[in-house]
Amino acid sequence: MVHKPIEHPSLKIDRVAVIDDDEKEIEIAVWQIEDAGLEPVVITGPFENIDDLMAKIMSSAQAALCDHRLNPYGYATFNGASLVARLYENKVPAILITQYNEMDTAVSIREWRRHIPVLLPRHQATSETIVKGFEKCLSELFGNIHLNRKPHRVLLRIDNLTQDGGENVIDAFLPGWDFQRAVRFPAALIQCEIEPKVGQYLFAKVNIGSVDPDELFFFDFEVAPEPEEDDGLA
């Protein structure tokens, strides 16, 4: 294989860690990384502590390709989304791969989505999209944030409080994004001093430049002030 690292002024990627609980998937990822001109580094589990896995990745590679569900075949006690977000905080480019895109994006991935620049549904992961994904990660990590990923402070209205896969979730309308379409996110994203209620208005920072609801992330929630009783007409 011809070795062809991904170059960026701040970081060069030539070794990519592969994190997956499925051996067949690991093999495929290895081939794809090789085809992309990079060197795959398979990190074998199991891991109970995210810091241990972080340390292994950071000592053996400059980037990571990470599956979301790591628990089914007993690889790790945490999920891939949380790992990618931690790597992001440490300026390690990481791509999250998901097989069950439909089921995971709104809750378990959305919780960490702010720090996941690239999410690839498994069938879209090829050597080409992997390289492009790492380029996008590098760009964001070193200051060039794409319009789709820039957060804006927006108003949202809570439409429904419910459960999804055992997690408390919120469905909310963001008139500044799409006033007809509710978006689901985990209630855990809202800091504990705010008690969410149906019909309540909140401010939050959201990347409303993205058209795809699966890409939206939320943080810095505030309770919106109540409308003034005297609106000046009296």
Partner: peptide, 18 residues
């Protein structure tokens, strides 16, 4: 079934490239 189906699809892509 979706996982093995995706695997077959991807392996055939890799066979093609290689």
């Amino acid at each position: 079934a979706s996982k093995p189906a995706t695997q077959i699809e991807k392996v055939s892509e890799i066979i093609k490239i290689r």
